[in-house]
Simulated scan of single mutants.
Amino acid sequence: MSQTISSPGAAASAAYTVPLLGALVVLYRPTSEHLTHLLELCVQGAPLLVVDNSPAASRTLADALNAHGAEYLCNANRGGIAGAYNRGLARMFERGLGAVALLDQDSQVSTDYFRLMLESCKALGPRAFAIGPRIYDENVRHFLPQMVSNGFSIRTLVFEPDASLQPCSFLLSSGCVISRLAYERLGAFAEALFIDHVDTEYSLRALLCGVQFYVEPRLTLLHRIGHKRQHRLGPVRITSMNHPAFRRYYMARNGMHLCVQYVPSLPVALVPNFITLLQVFQVLLFESGKLAKLSSIGCGILDGLLGRLGPLETARPRLAARLGHG
């Protein structure tokens, strides 16, 4: 099954065949509720590949998915979330798909998600692109800002009613659709980062390589980032993220690494480090486990400067043992 569209601006304006949009869902220790959600995705008609990052494969899960026409692949957290994306995308693009939606086990997509995303893919034609929905953070009950950047400055997009596709510069991987040509041009996701800022790094890479990202305002993805809580400090309202200490390590380390890697070409890569600084204040003022979190942030900053990457258990085995992570 495929869709045939015209190639805009092509010299020969010949028909261009775009295979059906596929979906790649990454799991980690899924629950029965997650399995129910996966089976609901199966009936939406998009080819579905499930990459399980749990420590061991689940024959029961594989059989249930296969019975509904979905493919199951165990990655055992090799390369973290980036590794799951890379193994899954390689498999799906080998099958001839023109674009793939990246979803996590908690992603809740609307019933028109695949239809509207396929319309957008057809409108863009045979070019390198990624498309993301607007992200509604259920923790704080508002949309995350969508940003556009020239590498030096950042501007927040404002959406008019009935807005169509709009160029942007940064997309969350969850809910994002990436075209085969974009993946070929940008290459694999950075497995050395393992988790956190994997999508930030890919967005920065796209800025350097001239691969355009878009936001699809007609679609909204419900998402939860951390365990956000609102606090008042005098007249100021501050949000604390309440991520565990091991996630603070990855955020700080990978943010610093992106700064070292990209700031000479893209000064906007400084922004993740401003976020790290903000999170230090959040931990000091509002969060529990301050010592573990602050020491993890400090280790992360140092390792980012030194280029000591990979999973925490490899980069900092003593810290991993102390945090009980592994």
Rank of each mutant, 00 (worst) to 15 (best):
G132E: 07
R115Q: 08
L118D: 06
R180M: 08
I81Y: 03
F194V: 02
P235R: 14
S107G: 08
R318K: 12
S296M: 09
V215P: 00
L61E: 11
V158W: 04
F213Y: 12
D303N: 15
L61V: 11
D112N: 15
A101F: 03
G324V: 12
Q230H: 09
P244D: 11
G98I: 00
R237L: 10
V260K: 13
E201V: 06
R322E: 09
R95C: 13
L305M: 15
P272S: 09
Q212R: 09
L116C: 15
G9H: 07
F286W: 08
V140H: 07
R185T: 12
R308Y: 04
P235T: 11
L181Y: 04
C74V: 08
A99I: 04
H231N: 13
G22C: 07
G326F: 03
R318S: 14
S110G: 14
F159E: 10
K122C: 08
E313G: 08
A315N: 05
L61W: 13
L171P: 00
N150V: 12
Y72P: 00
V283H: 03
S296I: 07
R248C: 15
R115L: 07
T276D: 04
L284I: 09
I195A: 03
A82I: 02
V263D: 06
L35W: 05
I301C: 09
R95S: 11
G96C: 10
S288H: 15
E191L: 01
E201G: 05
R115G: 01
A206P: 02
A123F: 03
M241W: 08
T60H: 13
I135F: 04
H227M: 15
F114K: 07
A292C: 14
E33V: 14
I297F: 10
A245D: 03
V25D: 04
A269G: 07
N77Y: 06
L266D: 02
Q105G: 06
A245M: 13
P133V: 04
R229L: 07
H243W: 11
Q261R: 14
D112I: 09
I195G: 00
K122I: 02
T17K: 06
Y16E: 03
F213E: 00
L124H: 04
L221C: 06
S110E: 12
R237F: 06
A76C: 14
N242D: 15
H227V: 14
Y72L: 08
G324I: 06
P317F: 06
N139M: 07
R78E: 13
L73G: 08
L284M: 12
R308F: 04
L208G: 09
A101V: 14
L144V: 05
G88H: 01
D303F: 10
A206K: 00
L61Q: 10
D112Q: 13
L165A: 11
E94A: 15
P272M: 14
R185C: 09
I195Y: 01
E71G: 08
P145F: 15
V18F: 04
N139V: 04
T314M: 12
G310C: 05
L172N: 09
T4Q: 08
A182W: 01
F286M: 05
C121Q: 07
R232Q: 15
L278D: 12
P19K: 07
E71P: 02
C42W: 03
A245T: 10
A269D: 05
F114Y: 13
S174M: 12
P126G: 08
H37Y: 05
